[in-house]
Design a protein around this nucleic acid. Structure first.
Lengths: 225, 225, 225, 225
DNA sequence: AATGAATGAGAGTTCATTCAT
DNA sequence: CATGAATGAACTCTCATTCAT
């Protein structure tokens, strides 16, 4: 155990706790930003609050992210768009029927996104997207587009394999997405519930919806959802 | 009684700069407010803009509505809560099966609310309700509560008449509401659509969803959505 | 008693209660203005409130008084400066010693001004005079100057008659005025009293002060107040 | 330890545009605020003016004081209430007769408060206290109450030692305060003086008043002021 | 003579962003 | 690198005064 090591840790008084892990800063800021953006919305979240929650000063925030909007984009990448690569691969390797794939997709979505703070970002974009067109563009490009692409691939797989009827994919996508969106709102917008949010079980709700849409997809005759 | 007298009483459209139109003002302001609130959200809509769009000065707005929040409440009443009396009556007088009633309800909702600017108010509350608790309370009280009550009555009618299985009404309500909410977001949040909003036909979407939920309600065994 | 008189009183429906005594309007406005100015100060009193309290519309107020400042001046004249003529005469006719005259002066001041709403106007000028120089000028001209002149005459009478020592009149005036001013503040400014205003009897206080200053004026040796 | 080092530590008056002077700011703002509040009153003083006079921008003011009211309270503390501790101690240590103590009290009050801008704050509260109840409460709590307490202690000392007659202390306090209040108004309210303020010597006036009230206090029989 | 709808300058306060240190 | 003091445009709301009717 080398003695000098202790000296370098104690001798310089300017090295306070916060300096311990410089490279961790952006991550701490992103986490603080996620929490606050989800809790209060984009416009209502003050830069200073984000910095404070991350344990740094206002100035430091702008050192890592040139503006509040760029900070938000980074939060999107960190929590949503950056994970599509992994998800795409997972589905490329999926073995089993497409119906199972779709059920898995919705279940896994709830586990990894819907039930987490990340779902607040989608709710946020739904809410404030119109006021921040650049953010909306970014979100569409980085999240909606790959998300739709993934779903489209799944549906196409079902159609190609003969499991699904030759439904209109672009249209059918929304049948899958709609319950997800509803759940995110139900989770993040107290305004739509009269009582406390006690009367929905998300997992069960998603299962039922999955069966409903699958029913539509599978039944080649009768309905085209 | 000379006939010409009636002529002189008829509406004279001449408008001076400082016109006296107390009767017309609130309506004009409410319409301008509806447009802007729906387009930009509550926080991002400036009082002065509302006034300008109604063709009056900043001060005039506050002559009719004591604050921006009260203006918003008035918009809610005008476009949503004030119309429940009529709707309730309409459903009280409805003749036909409850399944038809529910289909009618969803169709008529789209016609009178969903497809109009009024639906933007719900989207707005979903978006900004958390930042304006008083408005959220008002909305819950004046819109969500009577809306749920109406749906609950419909579902109860179906159960009581034996048409529907004895489903959990409080839960089932959300199966009906979810697609409506989705449609409102789809209409008012460009952020969730990659392309221009050309790939959904709301009426068709609602019909399909209506059949899906009815399928769940009618089947006395197997599923309780 | 001419019959037509009744007709003219009843025939025209536009002659409502408020039109009954046109010439009384300014008086009602002045009274309302006095009440409100005294209660809330000049700046904090809204023109509309004055009009409302007088039972007329905002516009009517400006019909009789071209501005809020002119209204205030009229209130001053009505309640203070316009009454000096009578007071001057009263003192010109006073018979008795100057000491008695001074005692009477202070007592009568309390009765007619100090204890009435009119004293609020002086407190108001003390308070807001600096913010409204034109009003302050007017008040000095119309109230302070004649008031001082009256007091000066009284003191001069005492000196000329040999009752009072040859005191510096301009200086001595303030010995008389100071307790009056204090009483007005005590009456109108809760801010200077810790407890409820229960511990001063104005009449007694004035009597004592009168004796104190007279003691100074009469005693030719020892003190020159 | 090299001597030059101290030189480099000494005050450097160089001032850039965006200077960092956190320590100095509150004091500068308080002084600017005192000047303006005294000159124009609370309501009529604009926040931006205070900031400008202190050489900073509007926003900076609110960096140090969360609102105009809090700024005013801070001015009160800085100039009046914060100094009672010292004054109380001074009087606790006073040696000499209570009559001398009272004379000293009035003289020293004029020196340290009455003749300074601080006296304008009392005049301001008299003026605007009614319009700003929270400020009036604060002033009563922080200034009037300790002020009265101090005077009460002095009078009680005189009574206990047998110097003063057993006067009603709560009442007698006002005999001492009245001339002080008058002087503050005379100094800050041009409205009550016809001519320029040249005809009163405050020190002399206070001395005379001190003798007058002492005359009342000392004479065990005859008068109870 | 009387109304009251309309005006618009101006108030206090917030907050993303900058930059001297 | 990091700080946090400083900025100033932007927001909601008020009210004396005007003037068409």
């Amino acid at each position: 155990m080398p003695a000098p090591r202790f000296l370098s840790d104690t001798f310089c008084p300017s090295r306070a706790k916060r300096e311990r892990r410089k490279e961790a800063r952006p991550g701490e800021l992103l986490e603080a930003a996620l929490d606050l953006f989800v809790a209060k919305g984009f416009a209502a979240t003050r830069s200073e609050e984000v910095a404070a929650r991350a344990g740094v000063s206002k100035g430091t925030l702008f050192l890592y992210f040139p503006s509040k909007e760029e900070l938000f984009k980074a939060v999107i990448v960190e929590n949503l768009s950056g994970r599509f690569k992994e998800w795409n691969q997972e589905f490329a390797e999926f073995e089993g029927s497409t119906a199972e794939m779709l059920r898995y997709c919705m279940r896994i979505w709830w586990e990894r996104v819907g039930s987490t703070k990340a779902s607040g970002l989608t709710k946020l974009m739904l809410s404030e997207g119109n006021n921040f067109p650049e953010l909306a563009d970014f979100y569409r490009q980085e999240v909606v587009r790959p998300g739709h692409a993934l779903l489209r691939k799944i549906l196409k797989r079902g159609i190609d394999s003969g499991e699904f009827a030759p439904i209109d994919v672009d249209h059918a996508i929304y049948a899958v997405i709609a319950p997800m969106i509803f759940l995110m709102l139900w989770k993040h917008s107290a305004a739509i519930c009269v009582d406390a949010q006690s009367n929905i079980e998300p997992e069960r709700y998603l299962e039922v919806q999955a069966e409903l849409v699958l029913n539509g997809f599978l039944a080649a005759k009768g309905k085209a959802s």
